[in-house]
Design a protein around this nucleic acid. Structure first.
Length: 877
RNA sequence: GAGUCAUUAGCUCAGUUGGUUUAGAGCGCUGCCUUGACAGGGCAGAGGUCACUGGUUCGAGUCCAGUAUGACUCACCA
């Protein structure tokens, strides 16, 4: 088959992806093999592929493809989550552009629009994953709001309610005024922002005195119901029990005393707004203060605020400020940096708000999940994530799961008067209600208006994607899954909760391993995000460097759990790697086989050597994968393919230009190349599949993707070591050619000073022939001392030299040898010190001592060789 | 405020129970090389007292303590 000189990734990649899909290679059904299952961390249905996804999904694909080759029944379930806030915001925006307001629609009408949107635009990201080469079982694609998943969610809710693990309560929550919904703590991001500290005078009732408070939010004074001071603050001791007048609204409020107040901060006097601050709320409860809610759900001032009604909270701040200035009550405004919480989804400043919500009593659920990780029943990679997990689990808070949205599973709670009935359907709730209210009409039962947090769907994912709530055949076969691959940033939001759910409903962990990936950061160490706009276009990268190139780039720099600083250069390196493989393929396939040619003896050595190396590689990969050292494993493969195979092995067996190759060498080389393809396939599926299609024979698998992972065979360390010495001689000679401007292919006569190594090189015809070929030598001889006008180098412990016809810079050569001598002397000094220490010789393991002795004797040989060279050079002065 | 982790070549990082010729890789850098699989390339080279100070040990980049610097997580912040 003619092989094109150019490797065009985009064409070849789409060809193979289609081919795999057509043959159904990604699909899995339960059978008698062992399962290896993975569930995708469901990306947001509104999402587009970004760097984090690429890293995360490449890793999953690597694990899945490798498991498949190793004979497991590999199943990778893809899907998306419904992302209630993000999606609802998108749909609302789209409707607004069409002139439709959400408030004009009924719930059912809105949901119809939302589903239409989802069908049309949702899940683009799954299509993008195909470009990456993801071998997901697409027939199993799940969505957190589809029928099966929703049924599970409702069932879970009802079950928890019946177990008394759910409750409804009025609490101070994080309110997102843009999305007009509550947020859980995990969805609020606190960051330091520049604000102001306003010093405001509150007039004392019935007097001319003032009390000055400091606040970052002057607009909330509309809702003040007290001013608090510390009991031991001498500045305010005479004010205890008195009243002040809140400016603008002229409300008379008490001065309360509480040691919560920090004397050092601000003025030491604190305004108290129980309805709009968590701490103030607690103070209010303690001191029985009035709770005045001055904000509407959208963050504007409510009727209760009395002034600036309908104005947005930030506009109101300015208006209050102006008003205070006018009244002369604003003492000063100082710049102040403080933490501000923003909504993860909408970036709106979060407003603390009192509200009635549904909560999960997490403390009742955590124990088995905590124990599982502590005992490594669920194993974390890297291990250090256990600390983070433990800390959160031990200090766990209740989980607020209701959201004031329409897009999501509606809370299955039905109200009548003061009663609530929780059931999987209105009919069931009605049956319950009828017991207490026999005359009730079903229409009088009102379902909760809120929906459930998206994470309340996601935490069931490993169970629900296999229809686990119906205990399906798939579930029994695939659960628990083998490994979860996700970013450490959602360890609480998702990972911990999934483990909790796994034990709660199935009495078993949802996954055996959790591999936490690092965050993809840019060159300035910033997390890549849409809002910063510092994320490269993922598909653009694939177009530019090929999916294989990008996969290489992502993986080659992502140590287990460590963050990775993304650089396009890494993808470029990956693309270059595919090119290298392609050209190696062209070389090997270009060799014409001559059936009459006998195999050169040096090829036998090369083949034996590389076979051992391959086995060492297979063994090393197993070790690395056990520890999820995927990046290291890839670097090892890269060196193995590029340096060992292309730069050394192929050069060793390559026939001289224009000559044919013998049958045996060609066959073995193809075999070794096939092994490379199989080993590399999980990382770079496309180039390996393409290469395989050219290399395959009657006896090998039809496709690389389904090729059997090679079984570990013998590793011969001796041949590997001896080859290292030969390579060192070859490199040493190349260096000499470089230094003395001798052309790479000019024939030379090489001499070795007699010792056991050089003698072996001379006596073993395979080694000698290999040396002659690789070094372009005329001859290789053994002598007992340097000859006239020699230039020498040391390889291993032995000395080699060639004779020059031209003059050399004697002084420069002496300097160089002396530098090397000094290094060697330092080296043996250390070794000698060790060996002189009796306790070392007596206590250290025998092998270690023996090795030190070898180091010493080799070092001494090198020194002797160097000293002789220096002497010889000096005599030439 | 509590905790976790880090500090190794110009840059980004490996270095897995302490011992493998006084530390490895990629990128970058320097020199040489182009009719031959590959310039998306080949060959070779330079570059590190492993943050600092002590300690444990026959032996420390690796273990312990302290110091410095940095990063992150959780909580709070009028």
């Amino acid at each position: 088959m003619e092989i094109s000189s150019q490797y065009i990734a985009s064409e070849i990649e789409s060809k193979w992806y289609e081919y795999w899909m057509e043959r159904g290679y990604f699909h899995s059904e339960p059978d008698n093999r062992n399962p290896f299952s993975v569930v995708i961390p469901p990306p947001n249905v509104t999402g587009v592929l970004h760097m984090g996804h690429m890293l995360n999904n490449t890793i999953q694909d690597i694990l899945i493809r490798r498991a498949r080759q190793k004979g497991f029944n590999a199943c990778w379930v893809p899907g998306t989550d419904h992302a209630s806030i993000a999606t609802e915001a998108k749909v609302v925006k789209m409707l607004r552009e069409d002139g439709i307001k959400k408030s004009d629609l009924s719930r059912e009408e809105f949901l119809k629009h939302a589903w239409n949107w989802k069908e049309k635009y949702g899940g683009i990201i799954l299509e993008q994953l195909k470009k990456l080469g993801a071998s997901c079982d697409w027939e199993r694609t799940a969505f957190t709001m589809d029928a099966t998943r929703s049924a599970g969610v409702i069932q879970a809710f009802v079950d928890l309610y019946n177990k008394d693990v759910l409750y409804r309560g009025k609490r101070m929550v994080n309110w997102d005024p843009n999305a007009q919904t509550v947020l859980s703590n995990e969805e609020v991001i606190y960051k330091e922002e520049q604000g102001n500290l306003y010093h405001i005078q509150y007039k004392l009732e019935g007097g001319s005195d003032f009390l000055t408070i400091a606040t970052t939010r002057p607009e909330t004074l509309l809702g003040d119901s007290a001013v608090a001071v510390h009991p031991d603050d001498p500045r305010y001791s005479e004010f205890h029990g008195k009243y002040v007048i809140v400016p603008i609204v002229n409300r008379k409020v008490p001065i309360i005393v509480d040691d919560y107040v920090d004397i050092e901060f601000g003025t030491g006097a604190l305004k108290v707004t129980p309805a709009h601050d968590v701490n103030d709320y607690d103070l209010g409860k303690k001191h029985n203060l009035e709770v005045i809610e001055i904000f509407n759900d959208d963050g504007s001032i409510s009727e209760a605020g009395q002034f600036f009604i309908g104005e947005d909270r930030f506009k109101a701040r300015k208006l209050v400020k102006a008003q205070l200035e006018e009244e002369g009550l604003l003492i000063k405004v100082e710049p102040y940096r403080h933490n501000v919480g923003r909504s993860e989804r909408t970036n709106a400043v979060v407003e603390p708000k009192l509200s009635l919500q549904w909560y999960v009593s997490m403390k009742k659920l955590v124990d088995p999940a905590l124990e599982a990780v502590e005992s490594d029943e669920v194993e974390f990679f890297p291990k250090k994530m256990k600390n983070t997990y433990r800390h959160w689990m031990v200090n766990i808070r209740d989980w607020c799961i209701s959201r004031q949205l329409w897009w999501g599973q509606r809370v299955p709670a039905y109200y009548y008067k003061e009663d609530v009935f929780v059931a999987t359907s209105p009919e069931e709730a009605f049956q319950q209600a009828k017991i207490k209210y026999p005359d009730l009409d079903i229409n009088e039962l009102k379902q909760d208006e809120d929906v459930l947090d998206t994470w309340f769907s996601s935490w069931l994912w490993p169970i629900s994607v296999f229809d686990g709530f119906n205990n399906s055949k798939d579930f029994q076969y695939y659960y628990p899954t083998s490994v979860l691959v996700t970013g450490w940033d959602i360890i609480f939001l998702w990972v911990a909760r999934m483990i909790i759910a796994g034990y709660e409903w199935k009495g078993k962990f949802p996954f055996k391993h959790v591999y936490f990936t690092g965050m993809v950061r840019d060159q300035k160490r910033r997390k890549m995000s849409k809002s910063l706009g510092n994320s490269p276009d993922a598909l653009g990268l694939i177009k530019q460097f090929g999916a294989d190139g990008v996969r290489f780039g992502m993986l080659s720099c992502s140590p287990a759990g460590g963050d990775l600083l993304f650089d396009e250069k890494l993808c470029e390196q990956g693309r270059n790697f595919t090119n290298k493989i392609w050209n190696a393929l062209r070389l090997v396939q270009g060799w014409e086989v001559d059936p009459n040619k006998t195999q050169p003896i040096e090829n036998e050595l090369a083949i034996d050597w590389f076979t051992s190396l391959s086995n060492r590689m297979i063994s090393g990969l197993d070790d690395k994968f056990k520890e999820y050292r995927l990046s290291e494993a890839l670097i090892d493969l890269y060196t193995y393919v590029w340096t060992d195979f292309c730069s050394w092995y192929l050069e060793m067996v390559k026939p001289p230009y224009g000559e044919a190759i013998d049958v045996y060498t060609k066959e073995k080389t193809v075999e070794l190349f096939q092994c490379i393809c199989t080993l590399l396939h999980p990382y770079m599926p496309f180039i390996t599949e393409e290469a395989w299609s050219h290399l395959k024979t009657e006896t090998t698998s039809e496709d690389c993707m389904l090729s059997q992972y090679p079984v570990l065979d013998v590793i011969d360390p001796q041949i590997i070591n001896e080859m290292e010495t030969i390579k060192e001689v070859i490199s040493g000679l190349r260096d000499l050619r470089n230094k003395h401007q001798i052309k790479p292919k000019e024939k030379l006569n090489l001499f070795g000073i007699i010792d056991n190594v050089t003698t072996d090189l001379y006596d073993d015809p395979k080694k000698k022939e290999l040396l002659l070929k690789m070094s372009h030598l005329e001859s290789f001889e053994i002598v007992d001392q340097e000859l006239e006008n020699a230039v020498s180098f040391i390889a291993g412990k032995s000395k080699f030299f060639i004779q020059l016809t031209q003059e050399i810079d004697v002084e420069e050569a002496i300097r160089e040898k002396e530098k090397e001598l000094k290094y060697q002397q330092g080296f043996i000094a250390g070794v000698q010190k060790k060996l002189a220490n009796e306790r070392f010789v007596n206590n250290a393991p025998e092998a270690v001592v023996a090795n030190e002795k070898k180091k010493l004797s080799d070092g001494l040989s090198r020194i002797k060789n160097l000293e002789q060279s220096i002497e010889e050079l000096k005599s030439r002065r």
